[in-house]
Design a protein around this nucleic acid. Sequence first.
DNA 1: CACTACAAACCAATCGGTCGGTATGTCAAG
DNA 2: CTTGACATACCGACCGATTGGTTTGTAGTG
Lengths: 213, 213
Amino acid sequence: MTSSDCPVLDDTKKPRRRNSDLTVHELKAATTEQLINQGLSGLSIKPILDKAGVSRGALFHHFPTKNHLIAAAFADLLQSFSEALHQSGSDLRSGRIDVSAFVEQVVETFVSDMFIGSMEIALGIRVEPDLSELVKEAVEEWRVSLAAFWNETFELKGMDTAAAAQHWAMASNLLRGHAFTSTYGVEPGARLAFCKSFEKLILNEAVIKKETA
Amino acid sequence: MTSSDCPVLDDTKKPRRRNSDLTVHELKAATTEQLINQGLSGLSIKPILDKAGVSRGALFHHFPTKNHLIAAAFADLLQSFSEALHQSGSDLRSGRIDVSAFVEQVVETFVSDMFIGSMEIALGIRVEPDLSELVKEAVEEWRVSLAAFWNETFELKGMDTAAAAQHWAMASNLLRGHAFTSTYGVEPGARLAFCKSFEKLILNEAVIKKETA
DNA sequence: CACTACAAACCAATCGGTCGGTATGTCAAG
DNA sequence: CTTGACATACCGACCGATTGGTTTGTAGTG
């Protein structure tokens, strides 16, 4: 999470005064890191500021409220989450990896920091209506993207659209459940066992779509 | 969550000075309610005190730390959770309900306040090592109880112990995933669809054990 | 008298957020 | 090229409210 990750650093064009984009990026990065490592309750302004190396004034200059910052950081997180899944799907369709490796990757993505962050926010929005509002759009995008991920990767023979949707909903639920279980800590081997079960239970009748490129 | 739920209200026996047991119970009840309705971050001492109608001094007289109170409340919650499941299992084995109703009940139990509370704590213990320690025992009991629930309710033909354990782990993951998904809000019908899919995916080859009573 | 069970004043630390001030940059007029 | 008006980016002292926890005192009981 260094500043080199930021794609918006070319000060070559357009009027930009100080380091506005950088500051915002650092702020979001620090927020994400805190969210994952310390949870929602660890999202106090002070540690975020310290970690980002930014002043209180700068934060409230760029974001009207702490929750606005959190929402912005979370939107970025969900997008990374989504991109990781689509990448795995693409790898599978192109033949770069096989189904087992695909499942491992997908499970890995779910049992990652990103999912933890999602859980934190999911619980947070139950209590904070304004945060819920701020995050709504990003969550909806994520929902659509997840459905698209399954549908663009696999075909389910003999299932209509609704049945397929339900099938992938179950797949997603399984992954979420496993990810949640993992937060309590898992014994070694459980991950692998889950992958194998998942493959058998969910992907048995699924056909990989051919690369259309 | 009224005080009438309390099984410890018979002041008829033994030396008890004031209302010690009552106070403790009110404290735990208020904590649970706050945990569910306001999340971990809503577990401030003040609102708990207000809700329980108890003073600060009383709390710290009975619990050395806020986290001790939380852990105690959570242990109660997990036990209720467990009891609800075992009740459903018993109802099924005795023939009082059929498989569909059983699945509905179990799903209902998972998508309840109790699961929300578990999620909150699960995330909380990632960040607070001492809370993690305080809760450890209750969580382990819950784990065992959940496994027992499946095994005492169903038999899986042609599966050894390990395979059966893995099968029920997947079942539990599905339920957890669905419960988590539900926290974001579900469209009507999704619950039913999940129940049907669950029954087909998980309980297809499961045989209900006979009532041994 | 000793002990439990409580009540409530009190504490330092921290919370999210505001505000006045300054440094830096753009732009248009002279 | 200089100058002054104006906007943006930022800093950090400060605010009232709230945090978990301590302490001191007291009412009731054996």
